[in-house]
Nucleic acid binder design. Sequence first.
DNA 1: GCCACATATGACAACGTTGTCAATTGTTAA
DNA 2: TTAACAATTGACAACGTTGTCATATGTGGC
Lengths: 336, 336
Amino acid sequence: MTTTIKDVALQAGCSIKTVSRVINNEPFVSVQTREKVLQAIETLDYAPNFSARRLVTRKSFTIGILLHEAGFYQSAILSKMMDISYQHDYDILLQSYFPSHNRSRVKLAQLIHERRVDGLVVTPPCDVDPFLRQLLASADIPQAQITPLNRSRQTAFVSGDDYQGAFLMTEHLINLGHNRIAYLTGPRNHRMSIDRLYGYRAALDTYAIPQDRNLVLDSEFTFAGGYTAAKIMLFSDTPPSAIFAGSDDAALGALFAAQELGWKVPEQLSICGFNDLPQAQQTWPGLTTVSHPISDIVEKATFMLLEILSGRPVKDKQIILPSKLIIRKSTGRVFE
Amino acid sequence: MTTTIKDVALQAGCSIKTVSRVINNEPFVSVQTREKVLQAIETLDYAPNFSARRLVTRKSFTIGILLHEAGFYQSAILSKMMDISYQHDYDILLQSYFPSHNRSRVKLAQLIHERRVDGLVVTPPCDVDPFLRQLLASADIPQAQITPLNRSRQTAFVSGDDYQGAFLMTEHLINLGHNRIAYLTGPRNHRMSIDRLYGYRAALDTYAIPQDRNLVLDSEFTFAGGYTAAKIMLFSDTPPSAIFAGSDDAALGALFAAQELGWKVPEQLSICGFNDLPQAQQTWPGLTTVSHPISDIVEKATFMLLEILSGRPVKDKQIILPSKLIIRKSTGRVFE
DNA sequence: GCCACATATGACAACGTTGTCAATTGTTAA
DNA sequence: TTAACAATTGACAACGTTGTCATATGTGGC
């Protein structure tokens, strides 16, 4: 039998309501009484029952995090979220979401409906699923999105600046003397993939470098995608002198392909990516990339959600953080 | 106002208890009544309130997962756990644990005390902390450990075979002609680190290769640890012809160091690791390593926990899964 | 000495479910 | 026909909190 608030009240010689007041730091409890209650709590090793508390307050003190897959990007997100919620006494509930998977949708709808979570942090690429977007839009639950697919909605989000990052990177390559720069895209329905493509194109235009359709290859933001795309590029009659992959995963795949084929990086071929995953600096040569400040992004998004949950007004609900160039060893001057 | 069981009862023209019976699939409800109730649930879009249900059943239908850090290993664990709990209708609660961090301990104790989770999956390296071990041992809560530090206790666990894996790897190197094989350890208080060291030594003994103390270097199971240790080794007067790192992270660090110093892998130096992380095959040259079947381990551990939770007897509570050699390009014949 | 008002406390009703147990109905065996 | 028993149903009390409201108790101003 676990100890309840009644036991504490009995021990402290007061009513359960007074104990409740002490627990919740409510005013109007005399110092002596408070002391007695705290003493009793200590003695009895009492802890309030969350289910009861939740039942009556209609809050769960839990943040749900919607995850599609569990990769590096996601673990970086989780890591930061754990820190923040740890400090704010919120629990974190993991909820997997498989796009276009009916059971998944039903489960999420239940989660929201039953208020098992007070708020939701949505991670990419969950929101590629139109059903999910609709569900979230119509659901009456506080939410914050991390680098969402679609920015037109009214929901709160925090994102990196994909356009600017890609511009910077392309500019960096141009400054190194490259004028045949290949770009490996991600899925065309990912906003970030398109934004990066536009940034790449804008930089080319700015420096008056003609666009070459053959240098833009539709791919996936994965190791395998980058690997395959790079091989296609490198086997072509007029290979590029630099490959800019839209994600680090793809860049690592491209790097692997190049090394497998015996190309020297960066002497014969420059390769760069986007995101600055931990692997980017653990590979040889270190990968030049664009930092995507995921830790900041998650921190801001989670904090935003907590603010919304606590009822405080949030002034800026849509934040885009600037990108930064991270130059390592995988890019270099063009070698004639 | 959300719909409750009362609304459903009213709509279906029966008592709340009968509705409860239908929800919980209890017997002794006539087909007609069940039908009416289901109809009402459908119409009203009703979902039971978890807090109320938890309060009365004293169960939370939630599995807690204790994590120290959120790295790759951990995200592999989460990924699998999400799958399984998804299928079994359990929620997953993330709980961070920072060893020798007092607040962390208090929070965990509360979590258990308040029964916010029905059971706990403990991931490494949380249990290096003696306080945690004591807390878990004295806590009356079902738990399953993943590759625990200490196997002497009565708790359920699933682990890989570290000794055998290291033996196989060392044997592989010996068969390639190596007789100066360095081994980079992990922390000495990690059982797995020691087990792997013993496996390495046993293989040397089996093939009558003299042990050389200078070839065993105390390190960390991290990229930085492997990097530093490899540099020390490679700068020595009598460098090894092969470096066996006790973890893939360390092996990747060693590989980076070797490449930075201009050593050709595997022509001049063989490098191998342990765990078969995804990066192991995304680096060039691909890393020879020992598979640590983390997915199976987590599946078995989680399943075990669910069995315990459901009250079914678990026959084998301590499982050690065999390791397997994964040969890639980072190891080769000794080059004279 | 008394009123007004802030401080301090408790009795009791929620919250929405499941568990207990009694009551009703239907069915089978003697 | 009736006893025995299974199937079906519901009334009501938990579960352990917090919210509401009423009731003390002190305290300062007149």
